[in-house]
Nucleic acid binder design. Structure first.
Length: 431
DNA sequence: TCTGGGGTCCTAGGACCC
DNA sequence: TCTGGGGTCCTAGGACCC
């Protein structure tokens, strides 16, 4: 048996931990630059607020509605979900974190009289009490069925946050009431194709012959099909090191000049190098992309992509930033209004097993750069992100407008909550 | 005025090798 | 009329996930 733990409306729940007055009210969390709705409370969903709705349209679509909006605050979400994960890890035999707000647990080898339902309910209660985060639990013989069970646990309060599918009778009953498009692994495209031929529920799907599924939906589809029938196919995997790492941002406005664009690319490259060091990887290829504004048909469109290989794989700030600058230089075109830029690092290897280049490699310089990056990481870890930055990360201040700006401020976030759990100056005050 | 960001896996087809 | 057979590697694009 597997259990899936999933935070309810994760980002909204994180905000509500420190704003309990918003429980039971429509709340949304916005993407970077306060662009789109990325998370909705149950009340907001019930009103018909769709995921991806541009924020500026909310007022038009729901005139007079009292919807509370938050800018996204990933520092807060990262910290609260980590607390949730730690509780699950400490209470479960085998644990695999699957995403920021989800974790699978393998319950293999539990005694035959083990009470799954009670276990799930108790753990959900404990997490709520200790962290303030509502979490629902689905338990079943396969991960895909556990996801279905979790859906029921979320949608029907009667389950008291935990739904178990442990007999074939329950499995069939669950699948009969489950729209095929909500199955884990069946996306919008497959849903449309399935519904066209009369497959509406997950149960209908499981009644099709296996070769037919294989032919139309290939290997991934066949795997989902078998999982729904109760055959365990999705491997138990720890979150392993990523194979590519990307940092990209849209800009609040548009940017035409090279220097400002380069400042953004620098910040993206710095973030990529931090992420690389965090997972103890080094990259052999640094790529940069820049894009004009697709929503503006009236302006010339251009998308550029350029890469710079590193002869010796690296993860230090200077090397990655320098390569990103070189890549940007190659693709930058004048006369374009840019809306988005990003850096991708790929061809990753473990930073303990770097293959050095005979002609490029300077051991002293290499060691120096590593030490510098380590020092920067340490300072920023202890004193807060971006305590120390490269000169080229600083945005030039607009004429007469005080000091140069930081990356954090280059993104619009008018409704951001405090970092209550990670920054001393944001600690809540009770008066 | 305003429209997100970050990943994985699989497949088909082309280019190339002998 | 007939015009081999068997591989590998790479890339682009599709589909999915959160």
């Amino acid at each position: 048996m597997y259990a899936i733990f999933d935070c309810d409306n994760c980002y909204v729940s994180c905000e509500r931990v420190f704003r309990p007055d918003l429980v039971g009210r429509p709340v949304v969390v916005l993407s970077n630059n306060d662009g789109c709705v990325v998370a909705r409370s149950r009340e907001a969903k019930a009103m018909g607020v769709k995921e991806g709705t541009p924020f500026y349209q909310l007022a038009q679509l729901f005139p007079g509605a009292d919807i509370t909006a938050f800018s996204s605050n990933y520092e807060l979400y990262g910290d609260l979900t980590l607390r949730v994960m730690n509780i699950i890890r400490d209470s479960a035999p085998a644990f695999f974190r699957y995403s920021i707000d989800e974790a699978f647990v393998s319950l293999q080898g539990m005694p035959s009289d083990f009470n799954y339902k009670q276990w799930g309910e108790d753990l959900s209660k404990k997490i709520l009490k200790w962290t303030g985060m509502p979490v629902s639990v689905g338990i079943a013989p396969t991960k895909t069925l556990a996801k279905c069970a979790d859906r029921y646990a979320k949608d029907y309060p009667g389950y008291r946050k935990c739904c178990v599918i442990d007999t074939d009778e329950k499995r069939v009953k669950a699948l009969l009431g489950f729209p095929v498009g909500r199955v884990w692994g069946i996306g919008r495209r497959s849903q449309a194709r399935l519904e066209e031929i009369g497959v509406k529920t997950a149960y209908d799907f499981t009644m099709k012959p296996r070769p037919w599924v294989r032919r139309l939906f290939h290997l991934p589809g066949e795997r989902t099909y078998l999982e729904l029938l109760g055959e365990d196919c999705v491997p138990n995997e720890e979150m392993s090191a990523k194979k590519t790492i990307c940092t990209s941002r849209s800009f609040p406005g548009m940017i035409a000049d090279f220097t400002t664009l380069r400042t953004h690319v620098t910040n993206d490259a710095v973030r990529c190098s931090e992420k690389l060091r965090q997972q103890h990887s080094a990259c052999a290829l640094v790529s940069v992309f820049i894009d004009s504004n697709h929503f503006r048909d009236d302006l010339p469109q251009y998308g550029g992509w350029g890469s710079v290989p590193l002869l010796t794989p690296a993860n230090d700030v200077q090397t990655v930033v320098q390569a990103a600058h070189d890549a940007l230089q190659k693709i930058y075109r004048e006369g374009i209004q840019y809306k988005r830029a990003g850096v991708v690092v790929s061809e990753l290897c473990s930073d303990g097993e770097i293959q050095t280049d005979l002609f490029d490699y300077d051991a002293d310089e290499y060691a120096k750069r590593r030490r510098l990056s380590a020092a920067v990481d340490r300072i920023n870890r202890i004193n807060g992100r971006e305590t120390i930055v490269l000169g080229s990360q600083q945005y030039t201040a607009p004429q007469g407008k005080g000091k140069a700006g930081s990356f954090r401020d280059a993104i619009k976030h008018d409704f951001r909550s405090g970092n209550y759990t990670t920054r001393w100056q944001d600690l809540l005050r009770l008066e």
